[in-house]
Every structure is written in C-alpha cells, then in structure tokens.
C-alpha cells in the first residue's frame, strides 16, 4: 500500500470510532447533567415527588441571600487558605529536606507520608474523631503543658474549623509531598554540582536554584489542593461536624448536599450547583492561565 492510499483509507474511516465513546460519556454524564441542572435551577421541585414548577431566577435570589450560603462560601475560601500551610508549605519543605538528605530513610518517609492519601476521608476522619474526643482527652495532656485547658474540639466553631482543616491537611500532605518530589527530581543534578563547586552554600542553593525551579510544581500543588481538598473535606465534615456548630464548618459542597438531600429543595440546590460550577471553573481557568504562562517563561 502506498502512503496515499492509507491516507485515503484513513479519511474514509475517520477518527469517529475512537472519539465517539469518550464524547458520549462526557456528554451523558457531564455536559448533559450540567445543562439539566442549569434548567432545573429555574424550577421549584423536590427530588422525589413534587412536579417541577417554574420559578425563574428566584432560586438564585434565595441562595444568594441566604446566610447559610454566605457562611458556606466564606468557609470554602477560608479552608482553601487555612490548608495551605499543611498542603503546600510543609510538604514542600519536607520534600526538599528528604531530597537533600537522601539516604536510607527516603523510602520510609515516602511510604508514611503517603499513607493518608489511601485512607478514604470518612475513614480517616473516624480515626481522628477518636483523637478529638474530649472524654478521651488525649489532646488535653499536651494542651495542659501549654497551659491550656481541655478543648471540646468539635463543638466550638473555631476549634471545629481547625479540626476539619487538620484532618483535610493530613490527607493532602502526602499527595503534595509526592508532587514536590517529582518536581525536585527534574532539577538538573549537574547544575547543583556546579553550583556546589563554586562553593555555594545550602541556603544559596535553595534560594537561587531549588525554589525558582519549584515554581511550576507549586502551581500544580495549589491546583491539586483545590481539586482534591474540596471533595475530601466533604467526607471529613460529614463525619466530624455535619457542618456544625451553626454552619461554622460547612462548605459549599456540604450545603449543596444538605439542600438537595437533607431538605429536598431541588431548585435552590440546582442554583447552588450552577454557582459552584461557575466559581470552580473560574478558579481552575485562572490557575491554568497562570501555570501556562509560567511554562512559557
């Protein structure tokens, strides 16, 4: 066969058989439902019996003026910020330390740090719940040393928020650690060796070579934190606090779950879905922009 005839055969068959399955899948389970939820957000309905009734933009007004949604949105952003020390800073530093030290413990660190990634959020949260249990008091002994009384972690708004953040951070830490490790292995060993021959100190290496080289992977880690930590936090919230006390630990996904499947308010739940998607897509798009600009540089 000549190349010309194969090219002809190819245009005759075309790429359709390879593309159609994936396009069908995303159409039926992603874009179709997205269209459906946008339509449904203009109706009042519940998920079991009530027939949909036209509501227009009322659902959006309801959601946006409800204090719960305001709290949930603030909490969602607060979680994203509060988790950064555990999901970006600490794993980054740990990855650099393990990479510089090398040696026999490398495998041990990688194994232990990664364990929580494999423990499903609700299972991990159950284990932590036992630690936060005020009756057990395993946290009160160290707090006594610091001169603080026992904390009823999950019933006070501020400490409950901290507790959820700690557990979510515990779960994300290992993922970020591995991503940073991947970024570090791409640093040119010759460059490091050359800098060291020039008698560059550890700090200088870190400041002028390692940290700048880690900038792209840091974007990836931030991205992973947004994509993974949201859904993972959901399981943690459901086990530890169910969003309480008084909504202090709820996030937008948890509120969506409560609206749709706790109160069966399909209309406002759908409106919230649309708002979440718009917000999420905006964040992801900005991050993609930033990271692609970083690559061009």
């Amino acid at each position: 066969m000549t190349p010309a005839t194969t090219a002809l055969a190819r245009t005759a068959r075309g790429p359709a058989p390879y593309l159609i399955p994936a396009l069908l899948a995303v159409g039926l389970t992603m874009y179709g439902p997205l269209l459906a939820v946008t339509t449904l957000s203009l109706f009042d309905f519940n998920l079991t019996t009530q027939a949909p009734q036209w509501a227009g933009p009322d659902n959006y007004g309801d959601v946006m003026s409800s204090p719960e949604a305001g709290t949930a949105l603030r909490n969602t952003i607060a979680y994203m910020v509060a988790i950064i020390p555990l999901s970006v800073v600490a794993p980054g530093l740990a990855a650099i330390a393990v990479w510089r030290l090398g040696g026999r413990l490398t495998g041990f660190y990688r194994t232990v740090f990664f364990l929580p990634v494999l423990i499903p959020p609700a299972v991990g949260a159950v284990m932590w719940q036992w630690i936060f249990n005020p009756v057990l008091g395993i946290t009160s002994a160290p707090l006594d040393l610091l001169g603080a009384g026992p904390v009823s972690w999950l019933t006070e708004p501020a400490s409950a928020f901290i507790a959820v953040t700690i557990v979510a951070g515990w779960k994300v830490f290992g993922l970020s650690f591995i991503l940073f490790t991947a970024g570090l292995t791409s640093i040119d060993a010759d460059l490091m060796a050359a800098a060291r021959l020039d008698r560059a100190g550890e700090w200088q290496l870190l400041r002028h070579i390692v940290l700048p080289m880690l900038r792209p992977v840091t974007t990836v880690v931030l991205f992973a934190t947004v994509v993974f930590a949201g859904p993972w936090t959901f399981g943690v919230i459901d086990v530890l606090t169910q969003g309480g006390p008084a909504g202090a630990t709820s996030n937008v996904y948890y509120l969506l779950y409560q609206l749709g499947f706790g109160y069966f308010d399909g209309g406002p739940a759908s409106a919230l879905s649309v708002l979440i998607t718009v917000g999420f897509a905006a964040v992801v798009a900005v991050q993609m922009r930033v990271s692609s600009r970083g690559e061009q540089r």
């Binding site: 396009l23 874009y31 939820v37 949201g230 859904p231 749709g260 739940a269 897509a281």
Partner: peptide, 18 residues
C-alpha cells in the same frame, strides 16, 4: 470538550446525577 471536564466539579452534579 474532553479536557474541559476539568472545569466542572463532579460534586456539583449530584442533583442531575441522582
């Protein structure tokens, strides 16, 4: 269309999925 699925958070679709 395929890579754009990254822009849609799965949990936001629970109502139509259900």
């Amino acid at each position: 269309v395929l890579v754009g699925t990254a822009l849609v958070p799965q949990p936001a679709l629970i109502v139509p999925h259900y």
